[in-house]
């Protein structure tokens, strides 16, 4: 035989899924929300997005090539680009560009590559970058332009729904909440905030796309949103200074966090049981931080905290083994 046969162990076929498909799938899912943010925030948003994506990809390339000295180029697998998109979604659209570059450096350099690259990091790189910026540049990071203003830098700034909610709690005056936009407005996206936080509806649309493409499973987003609805609802019933649960769910980065950040493959638990626990804890932490913490937004902190618990959840939350139920019944 001229051609040598190839031998390998089974299975001999593959489903055709790949890292690229998943990463770019998430990017496609984020596209509608991205376009919406461009529409609402104008050129500023475009500049922030481009800077963030390009610098993330550049840093990944530079670190792999010059510091880790690996020959395999990983920038095409889409993970760095995705980190860039998610980082940009977490930033106000009038942020100075050099801060964004710094955030990208932290996200990729410290959040991802120090751990060994894709698959090894403990914390979601985009969130690590955001939290780093939030702590280092609190003023710039919490000055949001009003949506619909098509200008950059000199845009007017206004209070976001989240800060209104926190003011209501700290002042104990429920009437402050009347300044909030209606839940419907918040769903569609007429609010100030970070770039990716404007339109909960489009984010949900992207989430549905990811579920349809089987990029993610329902467990994490549903458990987070349900927990927030229930917990915030109970608080609202107990004391009306706490906002309406629907407004809580549609405000701030909750949708973005629940559908795109918490579901990050690398930093979320592996078993469905573990994913539910993870989601519920994120939901609880988010509401707690939003209502009683120093920062108006608790989503990113909640996810980062639960990222740290993921290895522990993985150790103790095993999937149900085949035949396990039977064994327990017999033991009884």
């Amino acid at each position: 035989m001229e051609n040598k046969l190839i031998v390998s162990l089974s299975p001999h076929v593959h489903g055709g899924d790949s890292v690229q498909k998943n990463m770019y799938g998430v990017c496609i899912a984020l596209l509608p929300a991205m376009l919406a943010s461009f529409y609402f925030f104008g050129m500023g948003a475009v500049a922030v997005m481009l800077t963030s994506v390009l610098s993330c990809v550049f840093f990944e390339w530079a670190i792999t090539k010059f510091i880790l000295k690996r020959n395999r180029l990983t920038i095409l697998d889409g993970s760095a680009a995705l980190t860039g998109v998610l980082l940009a979604f977490n930033l106000p659209s009038n942020l100075p560009l050099w801060i964004i570059v710094l955030g990208a450096l932290f996200a990729i350099g410290v959040g991802k590559m120090t751990f060994g690259g894709l698959g090894q990091n403990i914390f979601n790189p985009a969130l690590a970058g955001r939290v780093f910026l939030l702590i280092s540049f609190p003023v710039q990071m919490t000055t949001w332009p009003v949506s619909g203003e098509m200008s950059y830098l000199d845009a007017q700034t206004a209070a976001t729904p989240l800060s209104i909610m926190q003011t209501a709690i700290s002042s104990g005056d429920a009437s402050v909440l009347n300044q909030l936009p209606s839940s419907l407005e918040m769903l569609i996206g007429q609010t100030g905030g970070s770039m990716g936080e404007v339109s909960a509806l489009l984010l949900l649309l992207g989430c549905a796309f990811m579920l349809w493409k089987k990029i993610i499973t329902w467990h994490i987003p549903v458990s987070i949103i349900a927990t927030v609805l229930v917990f915030a609802g109970l608080l609202h019933l107990a004391n009306p200074v706490y906002a309406n649960p629907l407004q809580v769910v549609f405000s701030g980065g909750l949708m973005l966090g629940a559908c795109y950040m918490a579901t990050d493959y690398v930093t979320s638990p592996m078993s469905h049981k573990g994913q539910l626990i993870y989601g519920v804890c994120i939901g609880l932490l988010t509401v707690i931080i939003r209502n009683w913490g120093a920062y108006p937004e608790g989503m990113s902190f909640a996810i980062i905290i639960m990222n740290a618990f993921t290895p522990l959840i993985n150790t103790y939350c095993k999937p149900t083994r085949f035949g396990e139920v039977v064994k327990k019944e017999v033991a009884k």
């Binding site: 040598k4 046969l5 390998s8 162990l9």
Partner: peptide, 14 residues
């Protein structure tokens, strides 16, 4: 001479 090509995890035991 090699008669076939092995394609899989690089381990003798595999």
């Amino acid at each position: 001479p090699r008669l076939v090509t092995f394609d899989g995890a690089q381990s003798c035991k595999v």
